[in-house]
Design a protein around this nucleic acid. Sequence first.
DNA 1: CCGCCTCGAGTTCT
DNA 2: CTCGAGGCGG
Length: 671
Amino acid sequence: MPDAPARAQALRAQIDDANYRYHVLDAPEIADVAYDALLRELIELEEAHPELRTADSPTQRVGAVQAGKFAAYEHIRPMLSLANAFDEEELRAFDERVRKLAGERDVAYVVELKIDGLSASLRYDDGRLSAAGTRGNGSVGDDVTANVRTVRSVPLRLRTEGEPPAHIDVRGEVYMRKSDFARLNARRLAEGREPFANPRNTAAGGLRQVDPQATAERSLSFFAYAVGAFEGATPPQSQWELLERLRALGFATNPHAQRCATIDEVIACTARFDRERDALDYDIDGLVVKVDDLALQEQLGAVGKDPRWAIAYKFRAREATTRLLDIRVNVGRTGTLNPYAVLEPVQIGGVTVQMATLHNEEHIERKDIRIGDLVLVVRAGDVIPKVVGPILAGRAADALPYRLPTVCPSCDEPVERLAGEVMARCVNWTCPAQRVERIRHFCTRGAMDIEGIGDTLAAQLVESELVRDVADIYALDRDRLATLPRLGEKTIGNLLAAIAASRARGLARVLYGLGIRFVGATNAAILAGDFGTVDALATASLEDLLRSDGIGEEIAKSVVAFFANRANTEVVARLRTAGVELTAPLRPREPVGPLAGKTIVLTGTLPTLTRDEAAELVTAAGGKVSSAVSKKTAYVVAGEEAGSKLAKAESLGIPVVDEAWLRETVGASER
DNA sequence: CCGCCTCGAGTTCT
DNA sequence: CTCGAGGCGG
């Protein structure tokens, strides 16, 4: 991947230099074509990385090449701006105002999606597209006629029977579909170019291309939602009818528009679309609520620039800028140094975000994130916040590039980063931070499932030196635990019971709990099933291990290395003494059951089963649970709020079923 | 050797 | 959930 910040800098320098020679020295050194190419590349780069756009960038030069490229487009009737509502209360206040002015009667509304693109106005004379302009300041925008012509969903000629209207201005939103955006970026990556940041910027930039061919390549789309001027035809009576008329004229209108009889129905829509917005193939940032009756709209009029008959309901923002206060480093169970951002607390999508992972040093370097920067943080379809990048314009002059510490923040031993690896590691096996993490991992649900030992207690146990390795857990007793703060009689009892119960989990979960590199839950189960006992595994050679399905060179080496370490074999020996079950039933040859040989993927929240319970049902029926959807997947079991896996299943034509289906299919085997 | 398929590891807030 | 990387079939 090219280094975007450096490239932008280089482009700016070249363009500034060319400008200087041209305008000041009057001695151009590069051809206009070459200059255009440089400027275009910079514009694209800044679209892909808005954080790279600086106030002094040549692209921001008012009246420079870019702005001068478009003629002014005057709107016959100004394009509206809308007042915003951010919650239910403000929507009700809007309704109150409307009803008061309408004479205290019920008012019907039309709710439309607020597409995140750019609004435009299209002029048709005698049924033909004659001109198109961006919104601009509402009265005057840019003339982008040639570019709009490349948008497939814009009819070049109206579909009418008989006489077309003499003149009509159609307003709508030019936007880019997420699927088209993904395709475009995939192509750019294949060509070794920087991908764009988001569909909106790409659509906006697309309309401003000098070369309409370049606009066409971005595959933009258009939804019509209003009419500015309407001459030579009987005007519609309502917004709802207007949308129908637009469809009849050959325009795409958004299919999710709703007619609502009361404000309560409108409010129900807001909740529904906020939930469903991720499933749409385009970004929306809210809803537009309009009074349906056009005569009433007229009567309500406008205050200042905002009409009184419509309001934009905005979803809670999913991105925000905030200050990066510090970069700190956690040490993971495997010794990896995991840098994370400490942010000035900021509200995003209804929660306060104050931390976000920064993954690794290379990631921070690539995005050029520095302590003290103003950063853009998003919380997109997933819940996990992400630092997109710094806002360079606000950077302090003395901000330094970030360097990962060279010693472990927990044990002060030197950090190692192997050639070709992204993660830096603390290789000190006795590092306290790693001890804590290893113990916590051993006790997690997928491993030994010891309820009560989480981060806090694990840290306390290591700190107090009651526990140094996982075998020490089984040596804990009432007296020793009582020395820890805030552990009552009852808690201790529960904890000891949980520890006792964990002895019987079996080899697969012990292996997983030990935290051998590359051995997660799946590989642990494979090894346990193939070898049956720890001793068989501990004495297995590289060749023995490689015979197991799915175990390759790296995993085998990691297992051999683990058992070659004296400290590890001692831990295993002490687990045995403590009475921990270290054998597993050998794997049955062929799975049997109604789902035998089938790969199932679970997604979303099922009505009554937890993820683990559902997985157990599948396994018991001879099926295999996998984490990602592929061509080999037999069924996808989907619940509430299913995400990308459901979409993937649909695109691959894989049958999607629900919990009831699973119960029925599995239940059949038990009778 | 490439491209798919999987697995492992880390992840924020309430 | 997503990313990076190991395993393995073509």
